[in-house]
Amino acid sequence: MTNDKRLLLLNADDNVLVCCQALSAGSELAIEGQTITLPAPLEVGHKIARRDIDAGDKVIRYGVPIGSTTSAIRIGEHVHTHNLKSDYIESHHRDAVEGKI
């Protein structure tokens, strides 16, 4: 199944696609035969789901796991720190760093 050329599939096993061109809210994207309308802008380098992913499942990029989901993710949804966590060391953010001080 072909995907929008503004999205990159790095490995056939991946369940995420990488955005390779800045996309504005409302952009229509073809993902695995479905048409998805972006609810918010997506920056280059960010990921969206290639298919529905259950809560607790592995997210696969480059053909290898890059962490587990913390909630169910629908096809076309942004996959990032709000719904994906490391299986090794928790990721930290600026506000969290400030909160520690």
């Binding site: 380098g45 890059i66 720190t81 490391s86 990721s91």
Partner: peptide, 26 residues
């Protein structure tokens, strides 16, 4: 890194779309 409480992962990595240390690692 686990003892230190932070992976080799900076807030700028998240801004750029990287979500976890293993994604950055790959």
């Amino acid at each position: 890194y686990d003892t230190l409480g932070y992976g080799s992962y900076a807030p700028g990595n998240a801004d750029g779309g990287l979500s976890t240390i293993e994604e950055k690692s790959m």
